[in-house]
């Protein structure tokens, strides 16, 4: 089973909300000072999904990451978790991508990799929360796709995917090769083992430039966008919380109940 997992480096979404700042130009986020970037947590679920399939059915997992200035210690995490190879699509020409230009570049890199049975993506990424790159890659490559996977079983050359729905879940049987996006129900991403970390340290990623995957500058990064970011802003919080006090927590709790009745919130 050959698997490819799309990952990326993002601003740590767990950084305190107060550290979140938008550039005065109004179209990008300023990385918070002193907070290291991380592998997108949604993508880590995709890595975990691929490793679970590898545990059950064997195979090879290749992580594929697109961006510029990818910190090796960060983007090597999938290797430390158990992936076999890491390919970086790394060039400033990839900056400013939207779902279109991202999916296009990844699809062209996947074509170059050539052999695959399953491509995994996160259900969305923690920066733009677009939720489209997986489906986009599948469409460009003409593959069937199953989104929001909670559980994956492989048998008889097919994948049986439990897909999260609004009502519960559904079971989808899909032929291979296919694309699957992983939801957090797939299970907590495993911690890298010491052996994994040591192995990742020794392993050098393969780096591909736009020319290596045969894409033109006009098709990638900001030039390849199909959408324009018109505005980026932080919603205003009112921040007028009335703290209910009392002699001890029990009394404060009782006062809260009285208050909620007074203001007819209950």
């Amino acid at each position: 089973m050959n698997m490819i997992v799309c990952v990326k480096q993002v601003i740590d979404p767990e950084a305190p909300p107060a550290s979140f700042k938008i550039d005065p130009s109004g179209n990008k986020v300023v990385p918070p000072a002193g907070v290291s970037p991380v592998v997108d947590p949604y993508a880590e679920y995709a890595v975990e999904a691929a490793l679970k399939v590898k545990d059950a059915s064997g195979g090879k997992v290749t992580a594929l990451s697109l961006g510029s200035n990818q910190l090796r210690d960060i983007v090597k995490k999938p290797l430390a978790m158990g992936a076999d190879e890491l390919i970086l699509l790394e060039d400033e020409a990839f900056d400013g991508s939207d779902s279109w230009s991202t999916a296009y570049a990844l699809a062209m890199a996947i074509k170059k990799i050539g052999e695959y049975d399953i491509i995994f993506c996160g259900r969305e990424a923690s920066d733009w929360n677009a939720g489209q790159v997986g489906s986009g890659i599948a469409e460009i490559l003409g593959l069937p796709s199953v989104t929001l996977a909670e559980k994956i079983d492989i048998s008889d050359g097919k994948a049986r995917v439990q897909r999260k729905t609004d009502e519960g879940y559904e079971v989808v049987e899909v032929s291979l090769p296919c694309l699957i996006t992983a939801s957090n129900e797939i299970g907590e991403p495993r911690y890298p083992t010491i052996k994994g970390i040591m192995g990742a340290k020794k392993k050098e990623p393969v780096v591909w430039k736009p020319a290596d995957i045969g894409v033109e500058a006009a098709q990638i990064g900001a030039s390849g966008r199909h959408t324009k970011l018109h505005k980026l802003f932080q919603p205003v919080r009112e921040g007028k919380c009335e703290i209910i006090e009392g002699e001890g927590p029990e009394e404060a709790a009782a006062n809260l109940a009285v208050k909620l009745r007074e203001v007819k919130a209950l």
């Binding site: 927590p249 709790a253 809260l256 009745r261």
Partner: peptide, 28 residues
């Protein structure tokens, strides 16, 4: 951060607050 989002709040251990809050509401 929840206190920046909330209209009313109580600062303290929920294990003490929730039972007392529930009891008082029952009464009210």
């Amino acid at each position: 951060n929840i206190f920046r989002e909330a209209r009313f709040g109580v600062v303290g251990d929920w294990k003490k607050i929730v039972p007392a809050f529930t009891e008082k509401l029952k009464e009210l």
